[in-house]
Design a binder for these strands. Sequence first.
DNA 1: TTAAATGCAAACTATTTGCACGTAA
DNA 2: TTACGTGCAAATAGTTTGCATTTAA
Lengths: 139, 139
Amino acid sequence: MENVKNLIQQRIKEKGLRITPQRYAVYANLLARCDHPTVEQILIEVNQDLPIASKASVYSALTVLREVGLVREILLDEGITRYDGRIDPHHHFVCVNCGSILDLEWDNFKDLPLQNLPTGIKGTSYEITVKGTCDQCGS
Amino acid sequence: MENVKNLIQQRIKEKGLRITPQRYAVYANLLARCDHPTVEQILIEVNQDLPIASKASVYSALTVLREVGLVREILLDEGITRYDGRIDPHHHFVCVNCGSILDLEWDNFKDLPLQNLPTGIKGTSYEITVKGTCDQCGS
DNA sequence: TTAAATGCAAACTATTTGCACGTAA
DNA sequence: TTACGTGCAAATAGTTTGCATTTAA
């Protein structure tokens, strides 16, 4: 889609970043996948057809994209940093069996009573991680 | 307290682990603190008075204590692995300003509707991370 | 007594950094 | 044209591992 390409370029540009092939590839890849890949997985996919980005550039692209708020890190397993191209509020599900991660829509768990927090603490946002078994692994 | 000492030793023993000075010190330290320390912080505190545990032993103790379910890892900031001596269900609060972490009691949030998950997915537990400003940093 | 734990150092993995070269605007 | 980004390799940080020695039970 030409539209998708334009959208991606526009998003990068309006954050004040230069559009480089490396940044474009990393961000496009992240938006195209439904899983929540690690740096290593992004690196592999981005260079699948022809080498386009070094490891350092993938790290660099992810760092800057995160800084401007286009992508975010998600930390669910120990020692594994994953990236998520969705930045709208949503939650995550982790399969305790196969480790796969799924997005859960915000509306599944909305309106948590943040006013019930201990005195002095002001909650402004929240994120929920649900654990269980997925479709494939389900009992 | 002699009671606390006995309790700690009993908990370690009933998990089938040998009680070593290193394991005792790591677990006791974790139970005594209200923050959620990193390995480095535990290492320093445990060796504060006199050297008792090497870095490898602290890692080893934390690993085995986690395996038997006496402690758990919490991943809230990027790249920082913290440990928590509380294993009863509870949630966490992270101050976006100073980064401090506080426990939130389970009862602060009524039961989440886990039956509303997408078809095929079976949720069995969940954990909430609330972000905002703490007592010290409050507006 | 002996299987299991410790301590040390080396190995490993993930990530960051410095710097010369390349390129988007 | 030039400030910014990339690629490479070296540096760093966090964690794991191998092995000889020590120790809890």
